[in-house]
Amino acid sequence: MALGGNPIFNGKNFRGATQAPRVPQAPFGQAQYGQQPYGQRAPGQVMDPQNGWGQQQNMTDEQLREMYNQPAAGPADTGRMTYDDVIVKTAACLGVLLAGAAVTMFVSMGLASILMIVGALGGFVLALVNTFKKQPSPALILAYAGLEGLFLGGLTRVLDLMYPGVGLQAVIGTLSVFTVTLLLFKSGKVRASPKAMKFFMIAMVGYGLFSVVNLVMMMTGLQTGMFGMRSGIIGVVIGILAIGLAAFSLVMDFTSIEAGVQSGAPQRFSWTAAFGLTVTLVWLYVEIIRVLAILRGED
């Protein structure tokens, strides 16, 4: 099963963690190297309910009962990725992102614009670094969140100055899309089927090519305005398509996280999951606030 359209979840390390090979087992009744045959004990050993055959030791009946009554080890106890881990680390990323955005609200407009550019460029670089890094780095992931906070905060302040209230509307829109997508995924009504994945990839390629062409035309002066070709009704239609793609990307992110938890991926990959969700939410917010700005500009 494909993990998702988000390149963060398609990296070799996360994919390898969720598709780890099974541990080879010896035939029934035979021992692996250094082990006793099944059902037999080595001399001087007693059965430990947690550790198997251990060294001979004198244990009272009460101590044995306590050992047998201990709860089984859960995923967190065995160093495996859990949904709680992903939630906590995603909340940490979003908290740092909000802190970065808050910085741009308490500085001059000129400095906020500079921080927006720094955040956009720095966030792009760290996004690439974190995506291709062999092991997830909490420090780099949180740094990415902080830089994206500067970018989103500066962008929101610029657009909110032109269209008052558009920032709050974008936040509400992003939270609404995230909540609805999560509820639909948990109910099983929306899944990343192979057919949907193919449509998503085709749409993403088309959207990416259009965005590159639009950027080049804006940089060369062939297109003017804040959004270039993404203005008027065309901009709204493309924006709605992009919001739909970002929402489906959330579905694939949820699918990847579910696969990681069920397969017992190492706990450190919960940072990878949090990073992937943060990237998708940033993309979703940018698309929503852009569509709102286009609509407000047409008033």
Results as ranks from 00 to 15, higher is better:
residue 2 A to S: 14
residue 4 G to E: 09
residue 7 P to T: 03
residue 8 I to G: 05
residue 10 N to K: 11
residue 11 G to V: 10
residue 14 F to Y: 14
residue 15 R to H: 13
residue 15 R to F: 15
residue 17 A to L: 03
residue 17 A to T: 04
residue 19 Q to K: 11
residue 21 P to M: 05
residue 22 R to E: 11
residue 24 P to D: 06
residue 26 A to L: 02
residue 27 P to L: 13
residue 32 Q to M: 15
residue 34 G to H: 10
residue 39 G to R: 03
residue 40 Q to E: 08
residue 44 G to D: 13
residue 45 Q to L: 04
residue 53 W to R: 07
residue 58 N to V: 09
residue 60 T to G: 11
residue 67 M to H: 07
residue 69 N to E: 15
residue 72 A to M: 10
residue 73 A to W: 02
residue 74 G to Q: 14
residue 74 G to I: 00
residue 81 M to R: 04
residue 81 M to Q: 08
residue 84 D to E: 15
residue 84 D to A: 15
residue 86 V to M: 04
residue 89 K to M: 14
residue 90 T to Y: 01
residue 93 C to M: 13
residue 95 G to H: 08
residue 98 L to W: 05
residue 99 A to C: 07
residue 103 V to H: 04
residue 106 F to W: 12
residue 108 S to A: 03
residue 109 M to I: 10
residue 109 M to R: 12
residue 113 S to R: 15
residue 116 M to D: 10
residue 116 M to L: 13
residue 117 I to A: 14
residue 119 G to R: 06
residue 121 L to A: 14
residue 126 L to A: 07
residue 127 A to Y: 14
residue 132 F to S: 09
residue 134 K to R: 14
residue 134 K to H: 11
residue 135 Q to E: 15
residue 137 S to L: 03
residue 139 A to V: 14
residue 148 E to K: 09
residue 150 L to C: 01
residue 150 L to A: 03
residue 154 G to V: 06
residue 159 L to F: 07
residue 162 M to G: 10
residue 164 P to N: 00
residue 166 V to N: 03
residue 168 L to D: 08
residue 169 Q to G: 00
residue 172 I to K: 05
residue 173 G to D: 04
residue 177 V to N: 00
residue 177 V to C: 06
residue 178 F to Q: 11
residue 178 F to D: 10
residue 178 F to S: 12
residue 179 T to F: 12
residue 180 V to F: 09
residue 181 T to F: 05
residue 185 F to A: 01
residue 190 V to Q: 00
residue 192 A to Y: 09
residue 199 F to R: 01
residue 201 M to N: 13
residue 202 I to P: 12
residue 204 M to G: 13
residue 209 L to V: 14
residue 209 L to N: 03
residue 210 F to M: 08
residue 214 N to Q: 00
residue 215 L to C: 00
residue 219 M to Q: 14
residue 224 T to Q: 14
residue 224 T to E: 12
residue 225 G to K: 08
residue 229 M to K: 08
residue 234 I to Q: 09
residue 235 G to L: 07
residue 239 G to T: 05
residue 244 G to F: 03
residue 245 L to K: 03
residue 249 S to A: 11
residue 249 S to G: 14
residue 251 V to P: 03
residue 251 V to L: 09
residue 253 D to W: 06
residue 254 F to T: 02
residue 260 G to L: 02
residue 263 S to Y: 09
residue 264 G to F: 05
residue 264 G to A: 05
residue 273 A to F: 02
residue 273 A to E: 04
residue 275 F to P: 03
residue 275 F to C: 06
residue 277 L to W: 01
residue 281 L to T: 03
residue 289 I to S: 01
residue 290 R to S: 07
residue 290 R to A: 05
residue 295 L to A: 13
